[in-house]
Amino acid sequence: MGEGDPPRDGKGILHPEGMQAARDLAAGVVHEVNNILGVVIGNAHLAKKNLANPAALEKYMSEVRDAAEEGRELMRHLGILAGGDPRRSRVLSLHDLVANAVSNLRKPVEMDLSVEEPAVELDLWLAQDALGSLAEFMASTSTVSSLRVVTRVVGGAVVLAFEDDGASLTEKELSKLFAPFSKADRRPKTGVGLTKLADLASRFGGRVAAGRRAPNGLRVVLTLPVASAGASGNGPGVPLSKKRV
């Protein structure tokens, strides 16, 4: 680079905000994994002391198994965050993704979907996981009684809003909502679930924002470019041996 050249992005160089995000992610992983290991080690010690007591042994080993399952879930989320790849994108039905994301919820969901069937080009696994994480985050908030999902096509973009009626977040909490392992009062832990949503938006030409819903609640709005081709479940990355009945 010459003396008068403007600074350029270099491979392997992280901007300060990128470094901070990496630090936040690393700190969150350290915290979560330490908690899990603490449970595993503690219960393993207790189990060893109670080898002659089957009931106690079962209780302690169940704790170990649950902690290990939690660890595996954390690794799964991190794996998806690491693996989302724009080269593996395919054209998908946004409404189909949304329907799947809310299908597992135990709370009522009002669907206010656009008449159009917007197609979006995304990584299938990252998209489904990110939207599912958002729905689960809202539904598992104890103060939330119902969710509302809205889609609207505006020009060449589709706006997807997830809304709930739970505890409202402060400005500070909202500003950090998509950071890894962020915390908000009267809301469940986010882990990296909402970070995946931000990652999805940034990788596929969209944006995501969080705000308050009046009179109370959370609104998360994801805006994505509408794909030009029609939606299909079978895009690049699906082996050609597939047939459709």
């Binding site: 998908l92 189909d96 489904q128 479940g233 079978n234 459709r244």
Partner: peptide, 25 residues
């Protein structure tokens, strides 16, 4: 019935060597 879920299932199954998938909606 969901195209998305069908694709996820088909892609998962295709990781098993020798597996061929037929899809129905």
């Amino acid at each position: 019935d969901s195209k998305t879920m069908r694709a996820m299932l088909a892609e998962s199954l295709a990781r098993i060597p020798g597996m061929e998938v037929v899809e129905a909606e």
